[in-house]
Simulated scan of single mutants.
Amino acid sequence: MRYPLFEAVRERFQRACGYCGVTEITVGGELTLDHYRPRAAGGSDDWDNLVYACVRCNQYKGDFWPDSTDLADGRRILHPGVDDIAGHVVTDENTGYLHGLTPTGVFHIALLRLNRSQLVTHRLAQRLQRVFEEKIRLLEQQNAELQKTIAAQERYLALLTAQATGRRPSA
């Protein structure tokens, strides 16, 4: 039986894993619900405690919940619906690897194994897709400019032809 909030959480995370970013399309099916604070550690089924997650991230995270020593050392999982992930983790666009900017970011990447080869390949494929889309956009823009140039040249040619033949240029 599904959680009552399954569809809402699924839409909140746009059908992608809140931790690693793979989508339902990428994995070929629905993902799972993760309790950010595990029920074993007193977590609830409340909206803000649920994260749409792929099976791997959910497994790697498991029932981890930081104790006071973990927190003091920055060992905690970043909450994708609350934390500013970009303040803790950066993607190397050339290699597809994630790098921690803070002890929390380093721990987050390590615990969830966010540099596993499949995710690195996924990030590189996403980057390539963005590059292709930008190239298409630039080519479409260039094509539009060339069409304007052709139209202007055709008008100029019509004017020259009209002058050479002594006729009035057509509109």
Score class of each variant (00 low, 15 high):
132 F>V: 11
92 D>I: 05
7 E>P: 00
117 S>E: 15
82 V>Y: 11
64 F>H: 09
80 P>H: 07
6 F>P: 00
63 D>Q: 13
21 G>N: 10
77 I>D: 07
55 V>F: 08
108 H>E: 07
34 D>Q: 10
61 K>C: 08
30 E>Q: 15
97 Y>F: 14
76 R>L: 08
89 V>M: 11
29 G>Y: 11
96 G>T: 08
54 C>S: 08
103 P>F: 02
12 R>W: 06
60 Y>H: 13
92 D>M: 06
115 N>V: 11
124 L>S: 06
30 E>F: 15
15 R>P: 04
42 G>D: 09
14 Q>D: 06
129 Q>T: 14
53 A>D: 00
69 T>R: 13
5 L>W: 13
104 T>E: 12
134 E>P: 01
5 L>A: 15
33 L>Q: 03
131 V>Y: 03
117 S>T: 15
23 T>A: 12
17 C>L: 09
61 K>P: 15
94 N>T: 05
87 G>N: 00
90 V>G: 05
35 H>W: 08
46 D>T: 12
7 E>T: 07
84 D>Q: 09
92 D>C: 12
70 D>S: 01
101 L>C: 07
22 V>Q: 03
63 D>N: 15
11 E>A: 14
49 N>G: 01
51 V>H: 02
131 V>F: 01
65 W>H: 13
108 H>G: 01
37 R>D: 03
1 M>E: 05
45 D>G: 05
125 A>K: 12
138 L>G: 03
123 R>I: 02
59 Q>C: 00
63 D>P: 03
93 E>A: 13
87 G>F: 04
124 L>K: 14
103 P>C: 01
107 F>A: 02
27 V>T: 15
53 A>Q: 02
107 F>K: 02
8 A>S: 14
112 L>M: 08
103 P>Y: 02
108 H>Q: 03
81 G>E: 05
97 Y>Q: 09
83 D>H: 11
63 D>C: 02
74 G>N: 01
62 G>K: 04
99 H>P: 03
67 D>V: 07
70 D>N: 13
17 C>I: 11
126 Q>C: 15
110 A>W: 07
117 S>Y: 09
126 Q>R: 15
24 E>R: 09
93 E>R: 14
114 L>D: 06
51 V>M: 05
21 G>M: 10
37 R>P: 01
30 E>Y: 15
101 L>Q: 14
12 R>I: 01
2 R>W: 00
55 V>W: 04
28 G>L: 10
117 S>N: 11
84 D>C: 05
86 A>M: 13
24 E>F: 12
31 L>K: 08
66 P>M: 07
95 T>S: 15
8 A>L: 13
122 H>R: 08
71 L>E: 07
46 D>R: 10
49 N>I: 06
13 F>Q: 07
122 H>L: 12
48 D>W: 07
38 P>K: 13
94 N>S: 12
125 A>H: 10
49 N>S: 03
18 G>F: 03
11 E>Q: 12
59 Q>M: 06
93 E>N: 06
10 R>L: 06
122 H>I: 00
43 G>F: 10
